[in-house]
Amino acid sequence: MPLDAKEIRRRRSSSLVYTEPPESLEQLSDQAALPNLNADWVNAKGAWVIHFVLIVLGKILFDIIPGVSQETSWTLTNISYVAGSYLMFHYVRGVPFDFNSGAYDNLNMWEQIDNGDQYTPAKKFLLMVPIGLFLLSTHYTRYDLTYFIINTLATLAVVIPKLPAAHRLRIAFFSPPPDDA
């Protein structure tokens, strides 16, 4: 039995969407070798509170900039939270620590959380936060159409990749082609 996943990790250059294939036996054992510190912290104590703390701090930061209206301030808070969480959960792949010999290099953090299980408490919470923030910020922007469109698009950008249907899905436009090794 070939332990290498080389045979199954093939992507045709023409296809726009492809699904990350399951890991080889060797990769799975490397993943299990040590705890995944990159993703495990979302279940740690205080990990949920930090989201609210950061949002409030961001709001205060944008409020103290002179000449920024309440509408802009809320929109900026929403956008910066969304941008930060997109970068963290959906853009960066792999683990910053050398604990698993790079066995997580093809997965982003959202896919690493809870070993890829869906609808877990941590994932539910992490989906609730941007939606709640969106409802709040549209409320405080007094439903101005421009702000509303910006906020909606930003929220969708982090909600859609969190859907179970988007699990391990790669779209050529957003992600470079994978290594063949």
């Binding site: 070993n115 299980d117 869906q118 609808y119 989906l127 939606i131 409802l135 549209t138």
Partner: peptide, 27 residues
């Protein structure tokens, strides 16, 4: 503005549905 309210309501309903879904493993 019924359209905006509808979008918000939809998002809210989706959030409720997501909250109530049982967890499952992808492995």
């Amino acid at each position: 503005d019924p359209v905006r309210s509808a979008i918000e309501l939809l998002l809210f309903l989706f959030a409720v549905r997501y909250m109530l879904s049982p967890s499952y493993s992808t492995q």
